[in-house]
């Protein structure tokens, strides 16, 4: 407050993950966030049944990045009919790993005194972007050269902020760090780095025409030794920049 202009990291709006019809009256909406270096699953539980709900617990299936609850689900008082409660569940990334399809899929089981319910959610990969993801410049150049061209993926992102400062600031708030910037033939080029929680580095080149209206697009090129993550990193760029 009072600092104006400071941008927070991207938080997608909550969506319904478990409909009351499928949850015997339990409705769950949620989103994923990254705050102060930690991942959270922010949840809203609503009891749309005619009986009290209690004894809540949560479990994840194995997943691509080892996401797991870092604490038990804390819903301390029973949930009366028509009552809602908000919970922020801290997560860690030291759980069992199994490659999911899509890569960012997470299978969740929630239990209460009535039954056990299962649902799948997808998360935006930015929750895995680490705070120490700014690669040293010399390392960036060497890594860029070292990663083969086959591991390079191109994407277009439309409706971005109107200039490279705004783009860079917005991305940095979600741990996408600008390592260098150049202007060539009237185009702004940003060289950026990201470190995922599992230690994978992603290098990015963003190219944009300065002074274009905000409906302009940027060309995103990603280089990574694990190129299967690139489409999901591109989705995260898109979500951050359009937010």
């Amino acid at each position: 407050p009072g600092t104006g202009g400071v941008i927070g990291s991207f938080v997608p709006p909550k969506s319904v993950w478990l409909h009351a019809m499928k949850g015997k009256g339990l409705e769950i909406s949620g989103t994923f966030t990254r705050r102060s270096g930690a991942v959270f699953m922010d949840l809203n539980f609503t009891n749309r049944a005619l009986q009290v709900m209690s004894d809540f617990a949560i479990q994840f299936n194995r997943n691509s990045f080892g996401l797991a609850p870092a604490a038990p689900l804390q819903i301390l008082t029973p949930l009366a009919p028509n009552q809602s409660t908000e919970v922020s569940l801290p997560l860690n990334t030291v759980g069992s790993v199994m490659k999911m399809d899509p890569l960012n899929n997470l299978q969740v089981a929630i239990k209460n005194n009535i039954d056990v319910f299962y649902f799948s959610v997808v998360y935006t990969l930015h929750i895995l972007f680490m705070e120490d993801g700014k690669m040293e410049r010399q390392m960036f150049l060497a890594t860029w050269k070292d990663i083969p061209n086959e591991n390079e993926a191109q994407f277009q992102i439309r409706e971005c902020p109107p200039n490279s400062d705004a783009v860079s600031n917005k991305l940095q708030a979600s741990n996408v760090f600008t390592v260098a910037r150049r202007t060539v033939d009237g185009q702004d080029m940003l060289y950026q780095s990201i470190k995922l929680t599992n230690g994978i580095w992603v290098l990015a080149e963003l190219r944009m025409q300065p002074g274009s209206p905000s409906c302009a697009y940027v060309e995103l090129c990603l280089k990574c030794r694990a190129p299967e993550v690139s489409p999901f990193v591109s989705q995260a760029f898109e979500a951050i920049l359009k937010n």
Partner: peptide, 20 residues
């Protein structure tokens, strides 16, 4: 400003990507 050659290297990279 100390020139460690990295500024120039980034300029060459950007140039080569724009005009391959």
């Amino acid at each position: 400003e100390l020139d460690d050659g990295l500024d120039e290297a980034f300029s060459r990279l950007a140039e080569s990507r724009t005009n391959p």
